[in-house]
Design a protein around this nucleic acid. Structure first.
Length: 883
DNA sequence: GAGATCACG
DNA sequence: ACGTACGTGATCTCT
């Protein structure tokens, strides 16, 4: 047996610790019982776990910077000068990083006068020479200078959740440089974060260009006089000293006087006792459970809970304002099975099996009694689950999950324990701990199960007052009580009602598509000269760009892009592309819509019951799953025919649909107050034509060509998305410069919109969040991030969220009112679907004239804006015909 | 489980 | 200089 090759993992402890800290900036939610912040330790633990799992190192070292000054300060006094001191939230965690590493069985090391980089550089060289495989993990790209055939460098991206690997090949690909030339690049660029200058006005692009030509700083300066006169040449000459100094500073010392040998770095294996102790100290209960010690230890640390598991339920087991929890492991409550239930109030908690509950009249009576108020966790889910066992839940006055989502859209876990912990309540286990996950998921013995459910019932009841107060503090009680909570029950009824889908229609399409797919496949193979999997972008890329030699237009992380916009650019020169596009379109329809939907038709009723996720999106929109009925094709006629399968539930009934016209732009007109945008809506103009006239200086609407209108439409969309020149240029296939001109023109003509955009970003910076008209919040922690990408994204989000979110608020109000109106008028019509700005109903044919008046009436006046709302309606024998 | 692609607003 | 349009979900391939 050959010995396994030795593998050394070197972690840049200081840099990864900081990345952990800033990557998981949710400071408030990561504190242990003593108030110590633990966010960075939590993230650091994750990365250590991943290292041991994926790399399986035989040797390992985590290096830390030591002290304030190093030999580099002797070369350059200002080295790393001007840095803010470590935030106190980080400083208090600092001593624990090495404790954690040692518990994992790894070594830590620091060396006076040297940085972590130098320790790592030195050991990587030693290990490379000794024939080890070496992996370096850091948040600092400078490390890539250490890459060799045996040394790989992984740099953290997105906090620490992702790593990007650098090998000699990837460095050549990305920079066109050999690893050692990274030092020259840094020399020319300098490093603002380490506070040393390079050559004035030289950034990455220029540095790469220079190195492509001259190879190194030394050679560059050997030939600098031969360069033709330019600002660049001047700067290079002036800053020569800087360039050489900063190259020296950027060079990692491969020969630092380390006092350990490679053998000292051998991995010792996890010290479970130390890990358990550490996790307990930090309150990392999730990690404890992964060690398999959680359940006993954790429940020991729990307060004892008093509850009764009933085998016979009587009226005295109920009182007003109790919590209610119904347990089911499946996500999809339309087809899952209830395991058991729990309910109660202070000092009076009960649990019972489903069988026991169904055998008693008392439970049903209490559950259905509107006057008996209940607090729940996920009211919609609870309502639907109980409906399927013949109980119509009423009297729900508070939903913890829904409230938590309103308070912070990020706090929306389906596991009650996670949300509870967010609010400082820890006396309840995670579902994963109790039930396990994946293939190992199972219901535990009754004692454990009922204890878990009793704790949930207690948690729900305890959290109610706290969340209610926070809603009041945030001025969100109206949003919660008048919109979201009533809506959850409207949605429950829509889901339960379901929509009828004609399987015959879909089966016909399936057959037709199958035949055509085979034909198209043949054409593709004929053009390509071989058979391959057209569904594989990887294989398709090889055929298109290697075998057939078409020009590469765009690349993805993993290879060639074969997305539509790329293929369309090839269409003129590549006959195969037409077939591929046809294939893609049909394959999508076939797998996602024809076959996909058929799977969801319930044979007993012929209906599909989607689930709306009310606590998922960051803007307040709904989403739809299992199946998604909010993305049924409409843009292409071929796909639109799918809608022919969506029909009314009864003979002689019709499908009726109403949609808001331009709701987001109307919302923008309202909240920005821009007079020109408002005027266009008040006067009932076509908004894109009106924008075209103003932006392109056209006097009469009839002179706006379809092309101008199309461009204006793209600009309008761009505005709603938080416009950027690049985004618009991509969308319109024009130059960035032209796009920027459009944008400038637009802002010139719609100054109110411009002001809104500036103000809302300012507001986000001041408050840390933005709001809709109804005070729905979205927190934007990245709004001040030093990373340009993250910050820009947060800024665009600050612009878009109040617009998209207010539109979502409006249709939600309309839905609540709509259901009430249908009820009051005693109509048979059912509201079935919501697709962001439209509502779809079914009704007897004779009710069509009533709906045609009632629905737009309700939708248009659900909310009064400073511009009118407009709603268009249609109806027919299927969803397809309601267009 | 992630990435690419494509369906919708 | 940076590298992008905003919000979603399902399916397929591939590691």
């Amino acid at each position: 047996m050959t010995e396994k090759k030795k593998k050394l993992v070197l972690v840049d402890g200081s840099s990864v610790a900081f990345r952990s800290f800033y990557g998981l900036m949710n400071l408030d939610s990561f504190r242990n019982k003593n108030g110590l912040h633990t966010n960075a330790l939590f993230a650091f633990n994750n990365i250590l776990e991943r290292i041991f799992q994926t790399e399986e190192p035989t040797h390992m070292l985590v290096a830390f910077d030591s002290g304030k000054t190093t030999f580099r300060n002797e070369l350059y006094g200002n080295y790393k000068g001007g840095r803010d001191s470590m935030p106190s939230e980080m400083a208090e965690q600092w001593p624990y990083f090495s404790v954690l590493v040692r518990a994992f069985g790894g070594k830590t090391y620091e060396l006076v006068n040297y940085e972590a980089d130098d320790i790592i550089g030195t050991f990587s060289r030693l290990a490379d020479q000794a024939g080890y495989d070496v992996v370096i993990i850091s948040g600092d790209k400078d490390m890539t200078q250490l890459v060799t055939d045996n040394i790989r460098v992984d740099i953290t991206v997105k906090g620490v959740s992702e790593l990007k690997s650098y090998t000699p090949e990837t460095i050549r690909e990305e920079y066109g440089l050999e690893p050692l030339q990274i030092i020259d690049m840094k020399g020319l660029m300098g490093d603002p974060s380490d506070n040393y200058p390079g050559v004035t006005k030289v950034g990455e692009k220029t540095a790469l260009k220079l190195l492509a030509e001259y190879g190194s700083i030394e050679n560059l300066y050997g030939h600098v006089e031969e360069m033709k006169k330019s600002k660049l040449k001047e700067n290079l000459i002036n800053d020569k000293d800087n360039a050489f100094l900063s190259k020296t500073l950027a060079t990692i010392d491969l020969d630092s006087p380390v006092t350990l040998s490679l053998d000292d770095l051998a991995v010792e294996g996890k010290n479970i006792d130390q890990l358990v102790e550490f996790y307990r100290e930090m309150d990392f209960n999730g990690f404890l459970s992964k060690l398999g010690v959680e359940s006993e230890d954790r429940s020991e640390s729990f307060e004892e809970i008093h509850f009764e598991t009933l085998t016979e339920i009587k009226p005295e087991h109920f009182s007003d304002r109790m919590s209610l929890y119904v347990e089911m492991l499946e996500d999809n409550y339309h087809e899952g099975t209830i395991i058991a239930l729990s309910w109660g109030a202070d000092g009076q908690i009960y649990t019972a099996s489903l069988e026991t509950v169904l055998a008693s009249a008392a439970f049903k009576k209490w559950a259905e009694d509107e006057a008996m108020e209940k607090v729940v966790y996920d009211g919609k889910r609870t309502t639907v689950m109980l409906h399927y066992v013949g109980i119509e839940l009423r009297g729900v006055i508070f939903d913890i999950l829904l409230a938590s989502y309103i308070l912070n859209t990020k706090d929306n876990s389906k596991d009650l324990a996670e949300v509870a912990q967010e609010y400082g309540y820890n006396d309840v286990s995670y579902d994963e701990t109790v039930y396990g996950k994946g293939a190992k998921q199972a219901v535990p013995e009754d004692a454990v199960l009922h204890d878990h459910l009793a704790r949930k019932a207690k948690a729900i009841r305890s959290l109610y007052a706290q969340l209610n107060t926070e809603l009041a503090d945030n001025v969100q009680k109206d949003l919660y009580y008048d919109i979201e909570l009533p809506l959850s029950f409207v949605l429950a009824r829509m889901e339960i009602k379901g929509i009828k889908v004609d399987p015959e229609r879909l089966l016909k399409m399936k057959e037709e598509f199958a035949g055509r797919l085979i034909e198209i496949e043949k054409s593709v193979y004929a053009e390509a000269g071989e058979e391959f999997n057209i569904n594989s972008p990887k294989q398709l890329g090889v055929i298109l760009f290697e075998k057939m030699g078409y020009p590469v237009i765009k690349k993805t992380k993993t290879g060639y892009s074969t997305a539509v916009d790329v293929l369309e650019k090839l269409q003129a020169q590549a006959p195969i592309v037409e077939h591929i596009l046809n294939y893609r379109q049909l394959a999508k329809l076939q797998s996602t819509y024809v076959e996909g939907l058929l799977k969801y038709i319930r044979p007993e009723t012929g209906k599909i019951h989607t689930r709306y996720l009310q606590t998922l999106t960051q803007t307040g929109r709904l989403s739809s799953v299992d199946p998604n009925l909010q993305n049924i094709p409409i843009r292409m006629e071929e796909g639109r025919k799918i809608r022919q399968a969506f029909v009314p539930q009864k003979e002689g009934w019709k499908i009726f649909a109403s949609d808001y016209s331009q709701i987001e732009l109307r919302v923008l007109a309202h909240i920005s107050g821009d007079e020109h945008l408002r005027e266009a809506f008040i006067e009932g103009q076509d908004i894109h034509t009106s924008t075209a006239m103003r932006v392109f200086g056209v006097d009469k609407p009839e002179d706006v060509t379809s092309n101008l209108r199309r461009q204006a439409k793209a600009v309008n969309f761009g505005v709603v998305y938080g416009i950027s020149d690049y985004g618009l240029s991509q969308n319109l296939n024009i130059t960035r410069r032209a796009a920027q001109e459009f944008i400038d023109k637009y802002f010139d003509k719609y100054p109110g919109v411009k002001r809104f955009m500036e103000d809302i970003v300012k507001e986000a910076k001041e408050n840390g969040y933005v709001e809709t008209l109804f005070h729905r919040r979205r927190y934007l922690p990245d709004i001040d991030n030093r990373n340009f990408n993250l910050r820009s994204f947060a800024e665009r989000t600050a612009i878009n969220s109040p617009i998209q979110g207010t539109a979502a608020d409006i249709i939600k109000v309309a839905m609540v009112q709509m259901e009430k109106a249908l009820e009051e008028k005693g109509l048979q019509a059912n509201m079935l679907l919501q697709v962001h700005d439209e509502l779809i109903f079914e009704c007897p044919a004779e009710e069509i004239p009533i709906l045609a008046k009632l629905v737009p009436e309700v939708m248009e006046h659900a909310v009064a804006l400073s511009v009118p709302m407009k709603v268009d309606s249609n109806y027919g024998d299927s969803w397809y015909e309601a267009k």
